[in-house]
Design a protein around this nucleic acid. Sequence first.
DNA 1: CCAAAGATCGTG
DNA 2: ACGATCTTTGGG
Length: 198
Amino acid sequence: MAADVVRRARALLGRTITGHGVTVRITEVEAYGGMEDPASHAFTRTPRSEVMYGPAYRLYVYRSYGIHFCANVVTGPTEIGAAVLLRSGEVVDGHDLARLRRGIEGRDVQLARGPGNLAQALGITLDDLGTDLLADHPDGEHFTGVRLGPEHRRRLRIASGPRVGVSKAADVPWRFWIEGDPTVSAYRRSPRAPAPPP
DNA sequence: CCAAAGATCGTG
DNA sequence: ACGATCTTTGGG
């Protein structure tokens, strides 16, 4: 369970995800342990988080601070509610569209840096809630949905640390990123979290 | 019914 | 350090 979502979180690093014409290589993620994890939206079962209890590799999307969307990969098993928040990525295709959606030019490392920015670059909204991220699509036509790319093969140097922005379980080191990658976001502790241990 | 919180981000 | 912005959640 806990080990499972962590393993799947780490396995998402280096893998690509395509959203509505933009593809990113995932460089930073956070694991959330579902009903056992006080920081998870699935800690208490509510309508919002219902898809988290469903089958693995579906998309869980929520609105953050009324402003952004955040995209998560549900990791199963069903009824547990575990999921992985996609925090940052490197845009590898659809740069123009990503720049347009983000309203910035130039600094491409910032196109999908941070979960709100990543979802925006991929064009992910609540309309995409529940999407099967592994469903294959007929090729030949331009694909406009959301899908994960093939599993990443090579070994990566992975670093870890506490999750960003959570007020509960604030010191659980379930944030994972590709060491040294410039697209990884900065750590920010929640102001509501209790003081860190010495 | 109402109040509060929130897995953020850009600016100052 | 702060505000934007709004949905969801939980308490009374």
